[in-house]
């Protein structure tokens, strides 16, 4: 009689382990919360208890449905349900906003000015497929569930954010190809990395740079290069195919040299600012 229950429990365990074998992603170290919801402290940043939320699609995965798309635990089921309902509310709000006469005008002007690819009516350009929207929302939540994101929104108030310089959350309601969307998310997260907590990165990469926050990063940077790259980034919301070569370069720069220092903010405030055009 108790055998049945034991069986069930061990089956559930197997599911967990499958997830775990995917291992910690490189984003996991700055994650605010683990999947069990408990706050991560610095000591378990290795992520030995890390198991990706069963309902998360890997951002890089190619299929629209992940292996474990239907979570079996009630907690996740309710979260999915909540997400789905929020999504519908969100969608209605967005639709009202873009179909409102003024806003449509403004958006039309903005888009024709830049790339010209989005000049059709926003209403027709809207992604309405629920599974796509949910997948995108998960990717966004994934990026937002980081210490870096918290630091970013705290340090750079909305009105100071500049397109192309500051990370901008991709617009999940626009129609994009799968590849384009994934690339936008990737770029967004790379940019967010600039706001990773300094302590973590200094421990790992440069042990001596405890004072890196006080140091003026300008001294160590070749400014022009980075600025070029930054400015070459098309505005995320309009870019169909961001230049890969630049991305590679930028990411290596961001990861190795500036990790942990919010260089972008400081740069915009720097007195010289000759490259700001």
């Amino acid at each position: 009689m108790s055998h049945k229950n034991k069986m069930k429990r061990s089956e559930a365990r197997v599911g967990e382990e499958e997830c775990r074998s995917s291992g910690p992603s490189r984003w996991s170290h700055s994650r605010k919360r683990g999947v069990d919801g408990s706050l991560r402290n610095n000591s378990d940043e290795d992520g030995d208890d890390w198991c990706r939320h069963a309902s998360f699609t890997t951002p890089e995965s190619s299929g629209p449905v992940s292996r474990c798309s239907r979570p079996t635990d009630w907690g996740s089921q309710v979260e999915d349900e909540e997400m789905r309902r929020d999504m519908h509310k969100d969608m209605q709000r967005y639709r009202r906003r873009i179909l409102g006469p003024e806003v449509t005008q403004r958006e039309r002007r903005a888009s024709s000015g830049s790339s010209g690819s989005c000049d059709s009516r926003e209403g027709e350009n809207m992604e309405t497929d629920e599974s796509v929207l949910l997948r995108r929302q998960k990717q966004i939540s994934y990026g937002k569930n980081t210490l870096a994101y918290d630091r970013y929104i705290k340090e750079v108030p909305k009105h100071l954010r500049q397109p192309g310089i500051h990370p901008k959350t991709p617009n999940k309601f626009r129609k994009y190809s799968r590849r384009s969307w994934d690339q936008q998310v990737k770029l967004w997260k790379v940019k967010l990395h600039a706001w990773d907590p300094p302590s973590l990165s200094s421990q790992k990469t440069t042990p001596n740079s405890n004072s890196s926050q006080e140091l003026d990063p300008c001294e160590e940077l070749d400014f022009g290069d980075v600025m070029d790259i930054e400015l070459d980034f098309p505005t995320l919301s309009h870019s169909e195919h961001p230049p890969t070569a630049h991305w590679v370069h930028a990411s290596s720069v961001t990861d190795q040299d500036y990790l942990g220092t919010p260089v972008k903010v400081q740069r915009t405030e720097s007195p010289g600012g000759p490259d700001m055009v």
Partner: peptide, 12 residues
């Protein structure tokens, strides 16, 4: 919604 998740999973 950590508490809700924990509670529901315990309930499960």
């Amino acid at each position: 919604n950590v508490f809700r998740r924990l509670l529901l999973n315990r309930l499960q």
